[in-house]
Design a protein around this nucleic acid. Structure first.
Lengths: 155, 155
DNA sequence: TTATGTGCAAAGACTTTGCTCCTCA
DNA sequence: TGAGGAGCAAAGTCTTTGCACATAA
């Protein structure tokens, strides 16, 4: 797995530590490992995947710690839930504004980054409803891989 | 509960019947009732809510029928899952393009309709990933009601 | 030292499935 | 009349919780 943006993993972890201290939360090895897995993955892993990955270096970690930690990282705005209708919640630590393409066939989640200078506008009415925290644009469809498979089947 | 757009409920149900026939699915009273509940509500009801509502006129209906029917209505593109991170799936039958404002405090879902002539553009890169089926714009924040409550508490 | 966090196990919430009988077309 | 649908009950699947022990600050 490759680090997905220019900020190094070490920097990200330092930031996590700072944020923990700021919010009166402890810096535990579990928290670091779990954050690492989400922050260093492009795969929008679900809790189970994170759990399996963390077990590599921490065999005694438990699933519920993963869930609890993902929840607290989310509350600290260190990670985000990829907003989807899939049975399992999937997480993303990338804070650069981007949308998601979600394949309705295979459930794969792809990041869609904006081109340089591209900016999406909000519905004009959005602000009437309250104070906006964040915006999630999700595009659902059939991904190229699945389209290709469909074609192959037809032949 | 008020019908939420200009198309009458009868027209919607006729459309459902047509679509069922078209797709080789049967028109059953359960399907009609369940669709009615979603189509005629502005509340983006979850399965449980639909179930409770349907029980009013069909006391013997079962939860699993509601789940199964919501799934098949979704597959027919008659209803959509409001894309959220809440534990319960919520449904919407409104096909006019709109976004959702989801309150992170009370989990309420508000429809955001576009102004006349307003049109949202997609990320330019979106099409590279596959064939787009639909777009979901979700705006998360704190709704006016909850903002007000926060203010009241402070006093 | 002590409030927070973790691990364990068990329960919970939401949803799905297998089977049988029913019913729409 | 026959394939698709409904009802019932039971089982999944994903996630949360209670409690006792461990540990970061």
């Amino acid at each position: 797995m490759q680090n997905k943006n220019n900020k190094s993993l070490e920097e990200k972890i330092d930031y996590l530590k700072t944020m923990c201290k700021l919010k009166g939360m402890r810096v535990t090895p579990q928290r670091i490992e779990i954050y690492k897995q989400v922050a260093n993955s492009c795969e929008h892993p679900d809790a189970e995947t994170v759990y399996e990955a963390v077990k590599g270096s921490m065999p005694n970690v438990s699933v519920d710690t993963v869930y609890r930690t993902l929840a607290s990282l989310e509350e600290m705005d260190m990670i985000f839930r990829v907003d989807n209708q899939l049975p399992r919640a999937r997480f993303d630590a990338d804070k650069t504004p981007h949308s998601h393409f979600i394949c309705v066939k295979c459930n794969e989640v792809y990041d869609i980054f904006l081109d340089d200078g591209e900016k999406l506008q909000l519905p004009k009415n959005a602000e009437k409803y309250g104070e906006i925290k964040d915006i999630n644009i999700q595009i659902r469809g059939i991904c190229n891989k699945c389209l290709q498979e469909q074609k192959n089947k037809q032949n």
